[in-house]
């Protein structure tokens, strides 16, 4: 049986199914707990489920806890051989509304792979800012107006959050590199305890792209250093995706409607410089440049 099937309702060019199918191929038959959000809506309509694995959606902010419940139940019922447990949750479900249950799951050390599908805003409801929306980004709740140039503040560092919980495996990935997603998912489940993978995934409608742009734009996020692909095992940085001739962030930003105001707004230049600093900082911190 396929683990995830065609006929789901994702927008043409959506990154989420690319992430999901490659994670599932990496881990094999497993249990999936999903938060409310884009993925849930495109895949779990009554009588039209796209899932070929046991799947549960409860509410928006509790997928980590539901997964923990599956794990303890399998332990109590002596059924741990049935397969690993994977959470798929959006960036808002992960970094905002569900961060409490996520911390609890990490803290108790449940044997769960938590995958954050990061499309950088609440895209299911039409692009409202989340804790993982990058600085300066336009969303419907952080619009570019006369005095504001998109989102104030930075993208929340959930990798650091995961590492602070002493997780054995923490990684970032991108739908532009699906083989890397598969490898990381496969690697992650070799570790016992909670694992965290955050996958950058473009939203064609929210980011203002056409379907064909999604993968090239996601690739640019990595090639500019704005979305470094890193991998930690037992707290040690073990692998990073190196970048040859790192590109300026403008190249990434200019292709997306959500950042277009930055090139007209009086405060835009400042924000672009800020984002370039973030990229440069990432390059330095992770040794991205070859």
């Amino acid at each position: 049986m396929k683990l995830f099937g065609s006929g789901h309702g994702a927008c043409p060019g959506c990154g989420l199914p690319i992430a999901v199918k490659n994670v599932l191929e990496g881990v094999g038959p497993c249990f999936v707990a999903n938060s409310t959000g884009c993925l849930e809506i495109i895949s779990s309509q009554y009588g039209k489920s796209a899932w070929g694995v046991p799947y549960i959606h409860s509410v928006f902010e509790n997928a980590a806890a539901v997964a923990a419940g599956i794990e303890v139940a399998l332990k109590a019922l002596r059924r741990t051989d049935e397969g690993p447990i994977v959470v798929f949750a959006g960036d808002g479900a992960t970094a905002d509304i569900g961060i409490g249950p996520l911390s609890g799951m990490f803290d108790r050390g449940h044997n769960v792979l938590y995958v954050c599908l990061d499309n950088e805003a609440y895209q299911n409801t039409g692009n409202q800012q989340s804790g993982l929306t990058p600085s300066g980004c336009y969303t419907t709740t952080t619009p570019a107006g006369k005095i504001m140039a998109g989102k104030q503040g930075q993208k929340k560092d959930m990798v650091a959050f995961a590492l602070a919980h002493k997780l054995p495996y923490v990684a970032t990935a991108s739908v532009a590199f699906p083989r890397d997603i598969k490898r990381k998912a496969k690697r992650a489940i070799e570790f016992k305890g909670p694992k965290y993978i955050q996958i950058h995934s473009p939203c064609v409608t929210g980011w203002g792209l056409n379907g064909k742009q999604a993968i090239p734009v996601a690739r640019l996020a990595v090639e500019t250093g704005l979305y470094p692909l890193v991998e930690y095992e037992n707290g040690e940085l073990v692998r990073v995706k190196k970048v040859k001739e790192r590109k300026p962030v403008e190249e990434y930003l200019k292709q997306q409607k959500r950042f277009r105001h930055l090139f007209k707004h009086p405060k835009g230049h400042e924000v672009v410089e800020e984002l370039q600093k973030i990229a440069d900082g990432n390059a330095l911190k992770f040794g991205l440049d070859i």
Binding site: M1, S6, G7, H8, S49
Partner: peptide, 22 residues
């Protein structure tokens, strides 16, 4: 006919032919 708790069977999305979207 409905199931208790809206439990769905696997891969029933296959009956949704999305080929006419694009």
């Amino acid at each position: 006919r409905i199931t208790p708790g809206a439990v769905s069977k696997p891969l029933e999305s296959l009956k949704v032919k999305t080929g006419d979207w694009g």
